[in-house]
Amino acid sequence: MAEQGVLDVNDGNFESEILKADKPALVDFWAPWCGPCKAIAPVMEELEETYGESIIFARCNVDNSPNTPAQYSIRAIPTLILFQNGKVADQVVGAVPKSHLEAFVKKVL
């Protein structure tokens, strides 16, 4: 699965791709106009290359999919939420360094 890259998810497929997935998932809630979101995008890709076998790396454009971010009370982007068994395991707000995010995903490994 590692070759698929960061998966685009939306209001329509969030449940099937993330909540009902058989693996934990890290979802990056972002928007195209958001500078810090752009800064963190390559970090998501690098982590996906390393951990993509065991964790789903996904991103959700809050502009196109407003319902999912509202459901998780997201009020700032980027917000990265770690899901496990359909539930929020943890979340982090803002553009954080790769080492920080790496430690974060290791929580569900």
Binding site: C34, R75, A76
Partner: peptide
């Protein structure tokens, strides 16, 4: 309250308010 009402980026987050 970061991300729960505290924001450092108007351009990013104005739309949530």
């Amino acid at each position: 309250l970061l991300g729960r009402g505290v924001s450092y980026c108007v351009d990013c987050d104005a739309n949530f308010y």
